[in-house]
Simulated scan of single mutants.
Amino acid sequence: MDNHITIFDTTLRDGEQSPGYSMNKPEKLRLALQLEKLGVDVIEAGFPIASDGDYETVKEIGKTIKKSTIAALCRTRQVDLESAVSSLEHAAKPRIHTFIATSDIHLQHKLQMSREEVLESAVNAVEFAKSHYDDIEFSAEDASRSDPEFLIDIFTAVIEAGATTINVPDTVGYALPWEYADLIKTLHDNIPNIDQATISVHCHNDLGLAVANSLMAVRNGARQIECTVNGIGERAGNASLEEVVMAIETRKNNMDYTTGINTKEIYPSSQMLAQITGKGVQPNKAIVGENAFAHEAGIHQHGVLKNPLTYEIMTPDSVGLTSNKIVIGKHSGRFALGKKLEELGYHLNKEDLNRVYTMVTKLADEQKVVNDEDLMNLMATTKYSKEKPDKSVVAGG
């Protein structure tokens, strides 16, 4: 089986549906160009039927982007399909992504349709889309709460109708990793024409399991992961692109998979999205958070300064950062403080460093973090030896 994992980015569609994350046409185009630079295989540009603005944005992105496939989302309704097909008329690599719910709870309470009617609607939609474009994706909304036997039936039928990707969404973030793995394996092993299509997964993070579920799906036959920059999306968000990609990159000893992502563009992409939306990234967010490569504890600081591998499993440079960050706070040690002061031009002997360390820890108790300006102000009012000390006598720890 091919070990390349297609990265399908839905930041511009599912991500934008997050409250407060809406983007206008120029902003979406700017981010789409960055996603292309990032190396995303598929960019889901929007939901054309949703509004005239969404339609025009998908159209403009399709005209502009040449390397990435551009997907337009649509329900299986005819008016949706026609809008999606039209929006992609100028795209170099167009994909129609059509969907309908398959769980009994959605059929009964939302669609008020039978399984037979849903299957027929799905097949008709795929056939119509296939008459216009070759690259067709079909999603079974709420797949993780659907009857696996019905999923096998509907996926078999849409592949026969021309679908080249079948998506198995954990729409409400309900699945546990081992459950989701079993579902993907069941589909992979029992859909008779599965060799004609790629299995895709689209996981939400309601239980904080979106990335884990996506990786478990890959281990069981999925070869496309749908995700978003910074993990944004409906409710608690989608699987985080940066986490999925860096898990694969960092743990190649355990997962022999590849992506086409230029990982050095991960942090710039994260920052661009934050700047466009005005929504910052949580400080402890994996990979791209402010604290992802920051160290305050003295033991950690000492180890990282000696060899970053002691506490960092990937380099800051690998995701587009210039360096890690040593934070001076009440947990910091003398070794890290001495190194930070050296960066600022202050070379203290052991006695002076001990004295300054005591002052810094008191200041840190008052204001949590001591920044470079605080240190320079402190040193400006502190007496210390101006002679550069012998390195052998400078305290560590």
Rank of each mutant, 00 (worst) to 15 (best):
H4T: 15
T6S: 12
I7N: 09
T11P: 15
Q34S: 12
L38V: 14
V42Y: 00
E44N: 10
I49R: 01
G53P: 03
V58S: 08
V58K: 03
K59A: 03
T64Y: 03
I65M: 06
K66W: 02
S68H: 07
T76R: 05
R77N: 07
E82P: 12
S83I: 08
A84S: 13
S87Y: 03
S87N: 08
L88P: 06
H90S: 14
P94K: 09
R95F: 00
I100V: 15
T102Y: 04
I105K: 13
H106S: 13
L107Q: 14
M113G: 07
E116D: 14
E117R: 09
V118T: 14
V118D: 14
L119K: 15
A122D: 11
N124R: 12
A125T: 05
F128S: 08
K130I: 11
S131M: 11
H132C: 03
D134A: 07
D134Q: 04
D134Y: 06
S139K: 04
S139Q: 10
A140W: 00
A140N: 02
A140Y: 00
D142E: 03
A143G: 14
P148W: 09
F150V: 06
A157Q: 04
E160G: 10
T164H: 04
T165I: 12
I166E: 06
I166G: 02
V168C: 07
Y174M: 00
A175E: 03
A181W: 00
I184T: 04
L187V: 03
N190G: 10
I199C: 11
C203S: 07
H204V: 15
L209Q: 09
S214N: 06
R223S: 12
V229W: 06
G231D: 09
R235Q: 01
R235H: 02
T258G: 04
T259I: 13
N262P: 02
T263Q: 09
S270W: 07
L273F: 04
H300L: 11
H302Y: 05
K306P: 07
T315I: 03
D317A: 10
D317Q: 11
G320Y: 05
S323W: 01
K325P: 06
I326L: 08
I328K: 02
G329A: 09
H331N: 10
S332W: 02
S332D: 05
F335V: 04
G338C: 00
E342F: 03
Y357K: 13
M359P: 01
T361S: 12
A364D: 15
V370L: 13
L375P: 10
N377F: 06
L378P: 07
T381L: 14
K383I: 13
Y384Q: 01
K386I: 14
K391C: 02
